[in-house]
């Protein structure tokens, strides 16, 4: 009978340092616990959000129907004037996100095409870090810039524009999400095989035709994923909105009006120091849950698309 490798090893005394093995097992356990922190974090996020959100809906003053359909959101007001319809916050968020995407998508995709396909390697090496700096500017600084620099200029151009408005916030946010769109799109365009580009060149396509008719379509899923991720970031962005778009929940599609977003409401409620367990505090968690679910769905969609696309050229 053949000895197993383990038996063989023991026979010649390799496996005798048991203490070393125990040490290794202990280290393995510690590292495993470190990795588990992320799982614990997720559970904690979900638990903290849902516990208070459930309390929110169990409150006799609130109904799920009202939450979904009412067009007024005033949970921090006195009891007689309280309304709990989240739609103004959703609409406000969409207003800002819309402006951000209108600005960010063409700019992000354009710069990605330039950096991936037209710029020399040297230009790319110089510009990419600068875009990273743009991505790294704290959003409170971008909010300051939107409020004190962009808004005054816009108010000279657009009549009836409020001091706090989604256009100014969205414009600056468009630049904030530009590096996200750009870097993911560059990656997915660079992943398009050379062979396919050459095939197009061989058919008499010009450089631009290769880019527009072959590279961009082939990288489309990655590009779309970058748009979705950027949208998720715009929805979750707080400081630019809190500083430049205001905190007045309004059900309006007029981009000149002061609005409130889900995030700016959360800031407002938190700053107001709502006592734990009050309806105002619970409203904060309910809005937080909505925000969390919305961004989670977008992130999962974006990840799914990227994964499917990654398999395609394997």
């Amino acid at each position: 009978m053949q000895p197993t490798p383990k038996q063989a090893a023991e026979a010649i005394g390799i496996n005798k340092s048991i203490s070393r093995n125990v040490g290794d097992q202990l280290i393995r356990l510690v590292l495993f616990l470190a990795a588990s922190v992320s799982v614990v974090t997720t559970i904690a996020v979900v638990y903290s959000l849902s516990a208070e959100t459930i309390s929110f809906f169990l409150d006799p003053a609130v109904s799920l129907w009202e939450f979904l359909t009412d067009r007024r959101w005033t949970p921090l007001f006195g009891e007689s004037q309280r309304y709990f319809g989240i739609s103004p916050l959703i609409i406000g968020t969409l207003n800002v996100t819309f402006v951000a995407l209108v600005v960010g998508i063409p700019l992000g995709l354009g710069s990605a095409i330039y950096l991936s396909e037209f710029a020399t390697a040297r230009t790319r090496r110089t510009i990419m870090p600068l875009l990273e700096i743009l991505a790294g500017i704290p959003t409170v600084v971008l909010g300051y810039f939107a409020l004190f620099f962009v808004t005054p200029i816009l108010r000279d151009i657009i009549p009836g524009l409020n001091l706090f408005n989604p256009i100014s916030a969205g414009l600056v946010m468009g630049f904030m999400i530009l590096p996200t769109i750009s870097s993911i799109s560059v990656d997915s365009m660079q992943a398009v095989p050379r062979a396919i580009r050459e095939a197009a060149y061989g058919l008499g396509a010009s450089r631009v035709e290769v880019v527009l008719k072959v590279v961009v379509p082939a990288a489309l899923s990655g590009i779309v994923a970058s748009f979705i991720l950027a949208m998720s970031r715009a929805i979750g962005e707080t400081m630019i909105v809190a500083l430049a778009a205001g905190a007045k929940p309004t059900f309006t599609f007029d981009l000149r009006e002061t609005i409130a977003t889900m995030t700016s409401f959360i800031v407002q409620a938190a700053k107001g120091d709502q006592p734990a367990g009050s309806i105002g505090s619970r409203a904060l968690y309910a809005v937080g849950s909505t925000l969390f679910l919305l961004t989670l769905m977008l992130n999962i969609a974006s990840n799914q698309i990227v994964r499917r696309y990654a398999e395609r050229y394997e």
């Binding site: 062979a195 050459e198 095939a199 060149y201 061989g202 008499g204 396509a205 072959v214 379509p217 082939a218």
Partner: peptide
Amino acid sequence: VEVRRRIGMVFQKPNPFPKTVYENVAF
């Protein structure tokens, strides 16, 4: 581009575009 318009090419490894058969030919 003019040159390649008149002189086509087939490569070492098959490199169809990630498009339909029809679109590949019509490209």
